[in-house]
Computed example of a mutant assay.
Amino acid sequence: MPDPVLLDLGTGTGHVPRALLPVLHRPVRIDLVDVNESMLEAARAALEPVRGACTVDVFSGAAHTFAPAAPGLAPTLITCCRSFHWMSRPEVLSMADRVAAPHAVVEIMGGGSLWTHKADWTAALRELIQTYLGEDRRAGTRSTYAGPGRSYGDDLAGSAFKQVTEHSFPVARAWRPQDVLGYLRTTSFARRALFADRHDEFEAAALQLLQDHARGGVLKEDAVFTVLLARRPGGDA
């Protein structure tokens, strides 16, 4: 089997490829895709100390428009985390079928959101956000969130990568209050732009709330991280 080529869609600041690097077998190339150029540069910088001998390249644009930089660079592993919700999923999976190696694996993963997590501190935080932004969960400056019309498993089953297995992993996270504020700035439901000139006010209130709920300076989240692995029928991955 050829050495791995990783394609990470909606890479953000590069957490997925950075987490995968220790377990990939001699990756020769990593392609990072995002619509946000500043996040792409942050991802490239985060990977620089740990990438070893592999090439890291960035592609600025919608995930479904990605094309390999040159022949022979077909990805063997295509990953996408929570951002899959916001993508044109059928078009993304069609793109994956066009560009991926015959034995490639598509990996869709996610661990939920602090908006939906059931704990006293997340419920209080959600209520605080709602006092500023309204009852509905925001999804950008002008719209609200709607759940996916069908499951990601169904999306994959309707694509070329219809051989799907699901794996669930319990995850215990410990958040510092300041880390939660940093996370919120990256979300669609509590990003800075939604609050206009009240963002500093919101963050001060949120920090106080989180500090009041923290035990020993820590907020606990018991979550489940779900990984969908999809292959073309008969694919040898």
Score class of each variant (00 low, 15 high):
L7S: 06
T11A: 12
V16T: 13
L20N: 14
V23T: 13
V23Q: 01
L24G: 14
H25I: 10
D31I: 09
D31C: 10
V35E: 04
E41I: 11
E41N: 09
V50W: 04
V58W: 07
F59A: 03
G61M: 06
T65Q: 02
A67E: 15
A74K: 03
A74G: 05
C81S: 14
F84V: 09
M87R: 06
S88G: 13
P90S: 11
E91K: 14
E91I: 08
V92T: 14
P102G: 05
E107L: 09
G111N: 11
T116M: 05
K118G: 08
A124L: 07
L125R: 12
L128G: 12
G134T: 13
E135T: 15
E135R: 15
R137V: 09
R138T: 09
S143W: 05
G147S: 14
G153Q: 13
G158E: 12
A160Q: 01
F161K: 02
F169V: 12
R173P: 00
Q178R: 13
G182K: 15
L184P: 01
A190V: 06
R191K: 14
R192Y: 12
L194Q: 03
D197T: 15
E203K: 07
A205I: 09
A206C: 12
Q208Y: 00
L209E: 06
L210V: 09
A214V: 10
R215E: 10
G216Y: 02
K220R: 15
K220G: 14
F225R: 03
L229Q: 11
R232D: 01
D236F: 01
